[in-house]
């Protein structure tokens, strides 16, 4: 079974933000909601690296674990989606998510939260595929159209990979072996320290 994953090749990411605007363009995401963003560490220093971040579509998603109304569900493509109809805007998922994926529109004068919004892997939501309702609430459903998330498809340097996890890990492995140096995958050094090479 193909499991959908994102992988950001930090040796390629140049923080051009194409992924961010592609997402805005494709899903008509309003100002202030950032389904995807690029994070840079050591900004302006030697060792500066950037990585594009969005919902990681976790296997055991903490957002789903804490949701009091159980609005999350995982599809057979391993994409984590949620129902805005069920969402009560409580914000638990925001605290649970290690990646800052859940976003909330600011509605009203007192900053109370609206329904949660996040990256859908360009796979819409629980409304009918490619329906007006789905488009309005969740944005596009590229997966249903036989496509992949536009952020990855438009990545300027081909840093952001998306799709079948086996396929993208194969692509990434090929890159590492061609380059002849350690993995630039995010978190690799944290997990395996400097001494382990691919």
């Amino acid at each position: 079974m193909a499991r959908m994953k994102f992988l950001c090749d930090a040796d390629r990411c140049i923080e051009c933000n194409a992924c961010v605007t592609a997402c805005k363009n494709e899903n008509d995401v309003p100002w202030g909601i950032n389904r995807r963003r690029v994070v840079t560490i050591n900004d302006g220093k030697p060792g500066e690296r950037s990585v594009s971040m969005a919902c990681m579509h976790c296997t055991d998603a903490p957002c789903a674990a804490v949701c009091p109304v159980d609005c999350f569900y995982t599809t057979e493509d391993a994409v984590v989606l949620h129902s805005k109809e069920l969402c009560i805007g409580c914000g638990y998922c925001f605290y649970a998510c290690p990646f800052g994926a859940p976003q909330y529109p600011k509605v009203g004068n007192f900053g109370s939260r609206g329904k949660m919004d996040k990256c859908t892997y360009c796979a819409g939501g629980p409304e009918d595929d490619l329906s007006a309702a789905e488009q309005a609430a969740y944005g596009s459903n590229r997966l249903a159209e036989g496509k992949l998330p536009l952020c990855a498809e438009m990545c300027s340097t081909k840093a952001l990979l998306a799709g079948d996890h086996e396929m993208i890990s194969e692509i990434y492995k090929e890159r590492v072996s061609k380059r002849g140096y350690g993995s630039g995958a995010w978190g690799w050094k944290t997990a395996y320290k400097e001494t382990i090479n691919v």
Binding site: W31, I33, E85, P105, D117, A136
Partner: peptide
């Protein structure tokens, strides 16, 4: 960063076309 209110990605008021 945002606007004082947000349109787009509107929350459906009525349940439409649920799967």
């Amino acid at each position: 960063a945002g606007a004082s209110a947000v349109a787009g990605l509107a929350t459906p008021v009525e349940a439409v076309a649920a799967e």
